[in-house]
Write a protein that binds this DNA or RNA. Structure first.
Lengths: 211, 211
DNA sequence: TGATTTAATAAACAGTGTTTAGTATATTTG
DNA sequence: CAAATATACTAAACACTGTTTATTAAATCA
């Protein structure tokens, strides 16, 4: 009975179509510009149809959050090839911040927005890629501290320190909090210099690592 | 001709009334629950009237952001009395994070939301209290580094490091990113422990300061 | 008192997420 | 094959949102 399978395929096709168009709108107009009604006209279905494939808007955002994690993982793929754990940590930090600044709409979904998290709690779904990234960073910190004989430091807490600092840098920069505490002549350049210097400061403070 | 003055007073009174009720709604229902129409019914005027006193919703949020800075400054008042710059820095960090967690709606307005910043750019208004806080923190870092003869460290960048880390901690915690990377048994307690440990880690990393 | 300025609003505009009731079409059953 | 059922889809409504415009009522000025 291939009909059920075909229907299943068609259902998945429309789900994919919705997510594909949602992705396009997200990139073009950001999370605020992504509305169910706009998405509906874009895929040439009525708004109500979308609710036959997704429970609500937050579920769509949740699915897109996962797409964002894939994107980020891709941009960080080469990190695993590095020998030196300190270089790995620095690269993770650098790429994390770069991703946050250049792909803010994805980043916002993954680490800042409340909407997709609503769905995580409701479904008790997992945040697999986020946890994996955090665990990997912690393992790098463990290696680094082991090499430096800093055995009193908790690598998990160090990872949290790094994550928080990087996340703070990204969000404060994107929401224009840096351009007001510094002379905001050329926001972009000032911002990049501040972030670069702060990342260096972080590496020196945590690991006495001068790049 | 006291009529003009009286009118000016009455105008200010209504402005104050709007902001007072806005504050009440913000505390009760958060920034998402604060709508112009709800605010209008609350002050017993029509929605259109609000636009005679404020340019748009963002201007109201901008004014409330400034109220938030006052609140935060009050909670940090005793810091200035501390002798040791390291104790000052730790207290600023501790109180900053505490404020962010306990008064999230205010914090969100001050350091996370995009809306009030729209207005800052439009009006070229200042972010005085935020800048003052940042400068004070930087001056504390300068003192601390001077006492420790760490003259190669830039205190402004250290302040940015501290600020970013604290901001990151607060926002990741509030948006439930911590409860998913740790076993989320008791979100509140896990979260508080993580934040406490991370703050300690920050103080050790930056200033070799064990509390 | 009559003219003018000011304050306030009803109603509309252009959106938003979501639900419900109803209609075509496709599939299954007798 | 025809009747019954199940599926896919949508029009319209509900309850909201921020903001603008035309109009009315009241206060002030001449």
């Amino acid at each position: 009975m291939g009909i059920a399978e075909r229907k299943e395929r068609e259902k998945q096709d429309i789900k994919d179509l919705i997510l594909l168009k949602a992705k396009e709108i997200l990139i073009k107009e950001g999370q605020d510009g992504l509305s169910i009604r706009k998405l509906a006209t874009e895929i040439e279905y009525s708004p109500a149809t979308i609710y036959l494939y997704f429970q609500d808007k937050d579920e769509i955002l949740y699915q897109m959050m996962n797409m964002g994690f894939e994107k980020m993982a891709q941009s960080m793929a080469h990190v695993y090839t590095l020998e030196d754990p300190l270089k790995r940590i620095f690269e993770i930090g650098r790429l994390y911040i770069e991703f946050g600044l250049n792909e803010w709409e994805w980043y916002h979904l993954m680490f800042n927005s409340a909407s997709p998290m609503n769905h995580i709690e409701r479904c008790k779904a997992e945040w697999g890629p986020g946890i994996a990234m955090y665990d990997y960073l912690a393992s790098c910190c463990k290696e680094a501290y082991a090499l430096q004989n800093k055995l009193d430091r908790d690598p998990k807490i160090a990872a949290l320190h790094l994550w928080s600092a990087a996340h703070g840098l990204v969000t404060l920069a994107v929401t224009h909090r840096f351009c007001v505490v510094e002379d905001n002549a050329h926001e972009e350049t000032v911002r990049n210099k501040l972030i670069d210097d702060t990342l260096k400061h972080i590496m020196i403070s945590l690991f006495d690592y001068k790049i």
